[in-house]
């Protein structure tokens, strides 16, 4: 794993202390200001979604004592909707469901895509071309239509995990391509030859040697996958093909807000929208910071 001993990196780590690869990555990441700020904001959003409901007095359900269409105030910081739902409570639940979906999609599709890409790149030949043709097929299939058709077919109660599974099953192709490209060059390296001559099985080499060495590609794509999943999930929910009421999602809240962007109920439209943008934006910055931090060609000198 320690392939950090290129002269440039040694020159960079001028201090006498030896640093491991991940320590280097961490140090570089924390020097990326936008990425660190984004990481803090993202952690705050996660806390808001998962811890918030325990601290706030209203949940996301309709209560008769909540006034309808109240503007933001101390009692209801994000206002209330027509039916009498506290929007702060609804936002917590919606953010939680959207994050649930995107985190599961990120992990699921990354595992699937990394294994697929590693197997294709490792075996080359006809296995590879067959597996790549399948990726071509997946590329041709319209993503929103097929995921929408599957989610729409689940009768009335689409739960967040239904959405997560459907999106993960169709969202792994970009990771597979990235990992395969990386594995194609890795498999010719000496340490793979060494592992094979030591009697390592194909599966052992793929899982223990190839995939760990593509970790930088994988970690970056996990972050991008979170952004992709949250945008897809909210889009499907907006179109009525995702999470259904009485449960809620950020897409569903925007759909319910309808045409209120410029009238007195503006908060119903902007708050969930800005939350989606905040999550996707911070995740993209974190991914960018990680990519820079893990790029072995990266130096501290700006080019």
């Amino acid at each position: 794993m320690s392939n950090t001993a290129s002269p440039r990196l040694e020159a960079e780590a001028i201090s006498s202390k030896e640093r491991g690869q991940w320590e280097m990555v961490g140090r570089r990441f924390f020097r990326h200001r936008a990425a660190v700020v984004s990481l803090v904001i993202f952690i705050l959003v996660v806390l808001f979604a998962y811890i918030g409901p325990f601290l706030w007095k209203w949940d996301y359900k309709i209560h008769s004592e909540i006034p309808s269409w109240a503007a933001p105030s101390l009692d209801h910081p994000f206002g209330t909707d027509k039916a009498g739902r506290d929007m702060l409570g609804a936002m917590m639940q919606a953010t939680k469901q959207s994050l649930n979906v995107s985190l599961v999609v990120a992990i699921g599709s990354t595992v699937l895509g990394a294994l697929y890409g590693a197997v294709a790149g490792f075996y080359r030949g006809w296995v590879d071309s067959l597996m790549m043709r399948f990726l071509d097929i997946m590329f041709v299939i319209p993503f929103l239509v097929i995921t929408g058709a599957l989610a729409g077919a689940i009768d009335t109660s689409v739960r967040w995990y239904h959405m997560a599974i459907i999106l993960a099953v169709f969202g792994w192709t970009s990771i597979a391509r990235a990992v395969r490209a990386e594995v194609l060059s890795l498999r010719e390296k000496e340490f793979i030859e060494a592992a094979r001559s030591a009697g390592g099985s194909d599966w052992h080499i793929i899982v223990k040697h190839l995939i760990p060495n593509t970790m930088s590609v994988i970690i970056v794509s996990v972050t991008l996958q979170i952004a992709f999943a949250i945008l897809s999930e909210t889009t499907l929910s907006f179109l009525g093909l995702g999470i259904q009421s009485p449960d809620t999602s950020l897409g569903l809240l925007i759909e319910a807000a309808g045409a209120s962007a410029f009238n007195e109920h503006w908060y119903l439209f902007y708050i969930p929208g800005l939350m989606i943008i905040l999550i996707a934006l911070t995740i993209n910055f974190i991914g960018d910071g990680l990519r820079d931090a893990m790029d072995p060609r990266q130096t501290m000198v700006r080019r």
Partner: peptide, 22 residues
């Protein structure tokens, strides 16, 4: 670029539609 990458099309669409109406 980052901002538009993070912006869901349905939200942008609803916003622009209402904006155009105004």
């Amino acid at each position: 670029g980052f901002l538009f990458l993070a912006m869901p099309i349905f939200w942008l669409g609803s916003l622009f539609k209402e904006g155009a109406v105004q």
